[in-house]
């Protein structure tokens, strides 16, 4: 599969703060790529450069093998749900969608139908004519996503699309993204929630301090950096942790010894990968 998006040695600083520091990666057409990193890792800056909102100090963004986002025709391929909500509070949900639909040439009955379709898709059809100002955080996030989807972009850039939402909105957002990805849309999904990255992404790029630490499928990352599974046992009220390549063999031996009160095997996850790569946990930062 050819790369729909290629980042070539991207650099970007704000004054003396280096936000993105030599980032290179490729996203295949139809792929869902996660950008996983703590706050301040440079995810939003990276997405801003992909969308053409920020100019890289060095390096290049190439979309569809054609060129950068400076070209309005190439920007047309992009849909963006910014991390900071980008909605007119004093307009209704429908008016927000209608405005951006018009800016993407979706007018008349076709435009109206598309707007209605998305209102239903994000579960806002019953509140379509209420002002956004009256919406909950979750509803705003869903609308923010809907606006990005209006013109059926080929490359969807989602910057922390579930920040600050209730669990219900979170699952509905994640479900919607999976549906869209299933339809062949290429997605770049930035998050600092490893569960989300694990659930949604074909591959995950781990970033910290503006650098790409590794990029691969979740399984391969865990294999490479996650370390051994941890066998946790409680015996006589005391917990023992044992890192092992073969928890089943170890467990058999422990059972033979007898007296076990509780047993648990922790498979390493992206958290462990991040810890191994940075020496910190995602939750800490």
């Amino acid at each position: 599969m050819s790369a729909l998006l290629r980042l070539d040695d991207l650099h970007r600083s704000y004054g003396s703060t280096v936000a993105v520091d030599g980032l290179s990666l490729e996203v295949a057409s139809g792929e869902v790529l996660g950008l996983l990193g703590p706050n301040g890792a440079g995810k939003s800056t990276t997405i801003g450069m992909i969308a053409g909102l920020l100019r890289p100090d060095r390096g290049a963004v190439v979309i569809d093998g054609r060129g950068g986002p400076e070209d309005p025709e190439i920007r047309r391929l992009l849909g963006l749900a910014p991390q900071s909500l980008a909605l007119y509070d004093e307009l209704t949900a429908r008016e927000n969608l209608k405005l951006f639909a018009e800016l993407y040439d979706l007018r008349g009955s076709g435009g109206r139908e598309r707007v209605q379709e998305l209102l239903v898709a994000v579960g806002l059809d019953t509140r379509a004519d209420d002002r956004v100002a009256a919406f909950s955080g979750g509803m705003k996030r869903r609308l923010n996503l809907a606006v990005a989807l209006l013109h059926r972009p080929r490359l969807l850039l989602l910057d922390e699309p579930t920040v600050g939402v209730d669990p219900q909105s979170r699952s509905s957002i994640i479900e919607l993204i999976r549906t869209i990805a299933g339809g062949g849309t290429t997605v770049v999904y930035s998050t600092h929630y490893m569960e989300e990255a694990q659930r949604i992404c074909d591959r995950v790029a781990i970033v910290d301090h503006g650098k790409l630490l590794d990029i691969d499928t979740v399984d391969s990352l865990i294999d490479r950096h996650g370390g051994k599974p941890i066998l946790r046992t409680i015996k006589g009220g005391e917990e023992t942790r044992l890192r092992t390549d073969d928890p089943v063999r170890e467990l058999t031996a422990l059972f033979a010894a007898g007296g076990l009160e509780s047993v648990r095997i922790d498979r390493p996850d992206l958290e462990a990968v991040f810890l191994a790569l940075t020496g910190r946990t995602l939750r800490d930062v």
Binding site: E73, L87, D89
Partner: peptide, 14 residues
Amino acid sequence: TQGTMVRLMIAPLA
């Protein structure tokens, strides 16, 4: 400040 400029900027507008 409310971020809508970002959306306007990525729309295919001059």
